[in-house]
C-alpha cells in the first residue's frame, strides 16, 4: 500500500532541518562513543599510574629501611665532608698568610761570617736583623734573599758599619 501524506507540505519541518537534525544526532552519538572510549582509556591509565606509584613507593620504603641501617656510615660521610670543607677554608686562608715562607732557606744560606741577631715573622712579613764581618759574605747572603721567588719585596730598613762587629743590617721582607 502506498504511503500518502495527507498533511499539507508547509506544516511539516523543512527537509534541510530534518537533515541537520539527523546529522546532529549522528555527531552526538559519535562524540559520545569517542568520549566513552577516551574516558575509559584515561581511567585505565590513571589506575596503571596509581599501581606503579604504589610499587615504586613500596620499593622506596624497603630502600629507606636498608638506609636506616647504614645511618652511621651516612653520618660519617657527612661529617667528613663538613670537616674537609671547613679545613679547606681555614687552611686556604692561613697558608696564604704563612709568615715563615722561605725562612728555612734563609737560615740555610747563613754562612759563618753572617750572624742573625733577631728574626720577627708575622702575617706574610719577615724582619731580619744581623751583622756580618765580610762584605763578600753579606753580598752572597742578600743575593740569596733577593733571588728567592717567594718574596715580593725586600727592603733594607737599616744599614751601618761598625769596625768592631762589621756590617749591621736590618731587612724587611714581604712574601707573595
Amino acid at each position: 500500500m502506498a504511503n500518502i501524506n495527507l498533511l499539507p507540505p508547509d506544516l511539516g519541518p523543512k527537509a534541510s532541518v530534518l537533515r541537520l537534525s539527523a546529522s546532529l544526532k549522528k555527531l552526538t552519538t559519535l562524540a559520545l562513543v569517542i568520549f566513552c572510549v577516551f574516558g575509559t582509556a584515561t581511567g585505565v591509565y590513571i589506575f596503571w599510574l596509581n599501581t606503579r606509584i604504589k610499587q615504586v613507593q613500596a620499593s622506596n620504603e624497603v630502600l629507606k629501611t636498608t638506609l636506616k641501617s647504614l645511618a652511621e656510615t651516612e653520618q660519617g660521610l657527612f661529617l667528613v665532608k663538613d670537616r674537609l670543607a671547613k679545613i679547606k677554608a681555614l687552611t686556604g686562608q692561613s697558608d696564604k698568610q704563612d709568615p715563615l715562607v722561605g725562612f728555612e732557606q734563609i737560615l740555610g744560606a747563613v754562612s759563618p761570617d753572617v750572624s742573625l741577631t733577631e728574626v720577627k715573622a708575622a702575617s706574610g712579613e719577615l724582619s731580619l736583623s744581623g751583622s756580618c764581618t765580610s762584605g763578600e759574605a753579606l753580598g752572597r747572603f742578600w743575593q740569596g734573599i733577593l733571588t728567592n721567588p717567594e718574596y715580593k719585596t725586600v727592603e733594607l730598613e737599616n744599614f751601618s758599619f761598625n769596625p768592631k762587629s762589621g756590617y749591621l743590617f736590618e731587612l724587611r721582607i714581604a712574601s707573595r
Binding site: L90, P99, L100, E118, V119, K120, A121
Partner: peptide, 13 residues
C-alpha cells in the same frame, strides 16, 4: 688538631 704558626720572634743573642 690543625695548627699553624702565626708569628715568630727569635732573639739569637
Amino acid at each position: 688538631p690543625l695548627t699553624r704558626v702565626s708569628s715568630l720572634d727569635l732573639s739569637l743573642v
